[in-house]
């Protein structure tokens, strides 16, 4: 064995200081942890840790305020964009973000999301889309894919009776209030790095008062998809990405 490389001067990657040392409560392989860390790294790299306020949702990431080492608050189910609107209007110099899952943002909070985007409120909405209600045990979400099985669609989602999966990002991109809408994922190192760049861009636009930014992160749910984490990432590539293609949806003109 060569010389010992584990020295402070050789350090290339460690957990960001914008996250606390608490052990995450998420299931093994869940994309939430990575999405949290990328958001925290973006905050740390932009040196805005002291000026950032986050709003935690209801859902798997309900305890997000334990993990971000920034000021955080909790909102009622789906109402994070409404709470963020209030916070941002009272303290316009702060950086405000909401962190919401698909059950929170795309189901019970659709109205708040669409109206906040339509008003062009200056904050960042982070939307984690794993196509299922994770915390409550794998029920069908608005974003559940066609023929995808869940506990409330045991024979697969039937489009005729249950509607088509909701593409929230494309929906809000049509609104004049949104400035930057993009869809990313956290299943490979390259995609993880792209996600962080998108978060950084969104915070930069927020500084310039450009309008609402929404970053959708297509994520996995190994527990409720009933797969191993590695299998779930593969399934996501094969099934989620054709319907939810990655990339920028609305970019500044």
């Amino acid at each position: 064995m060569a010389e010992n490389l584990i020295k402070p001067e050789n350090l290339v990657y460690e957990k960001t200081n914008a996250m606390t040392d608490r052990v995450l409560h998420y299931c093994p392989g869940c994309g939430h942890g990575t999405a949290h860390r990328m958001l925290a790294e973006a905050i740390e790299e932009l040196e805005i840790q002291g000026e950032t306020i986050g709003i935690a949702p209801v859902g798997c990431s309900v305890l997000a305020y334990y993990y971000f080492d920034v000021d955080m608050t909790e909102a009622a189910h789906g109402r994070a964009p409404a709470v963020a609107t209030g916070i941002k209007r009272v303290m316009p110099e702060k950086y405000v973000f909401t962190y919401q899952g698909d059950g929170d943002l795309a189901a019970i909070g659709t109205a708040e999301t669409i109206h906040a985007c339509n008003r062009g409120e200056n904050f960042l909405i982070v939307f984690i889309n794993n196509g299922i209600y994770g915390m409550t045990g794998g029920q069908m979400a608005p974003t559940t894919l066609e023929n995808m099985k869940s506990t409330t669609s045991p024979r697969g989602r039937d489009i005729k009776t249950m509607g088509s999966p909701l593409k929230i990002s494309e929906l809000v991109a049509e609104l004049p209030g949104t400035y930057y809408v993009a869809r990313h994922s956290v299943h490979t190192p390259a995609n993880v790095r792209k996600t962080k760049r998108a978060f950084k861009k969104a915070f930069q636009y927020q500084k310039d008062n450009k309008g609402t930014c929404l970053i959708e992160v297509v994520s996995n749910c190994p527990s409720n998809w009933k797969m191993t984490p590695v299998e779930s990432n593969k399934w996501m590539e094969e099934n989620m990405f054709p319907y939810y293609p990655l990339g920028d949806i609305k970019v500044p003109q």
Binding site: M1, A2, L5, I6, K7, E9, N10, L11, V12, Y13, E14, K15, T16, M19, V23, L24, Y26, P28, G29, C30, G31, H32, G33, T34, R37, V186, T188, P189, V192, R193
Partner: peptide, 25 residues
């Protein structure tokens, strides 16, 4: 094994931030 090149891919992808990476300068 000891083939690590310090690319930090493992640490970037780790959902639980359990990995710290070092690389010779």
């Amino acid at each position: 094994n000891s083939a690590c090149t310090g690319c930090a891919n493992c640490a970037v992808i780790c959902p639980d931030a359990a990995i710290t990476v070092y690389r010779e300068k």
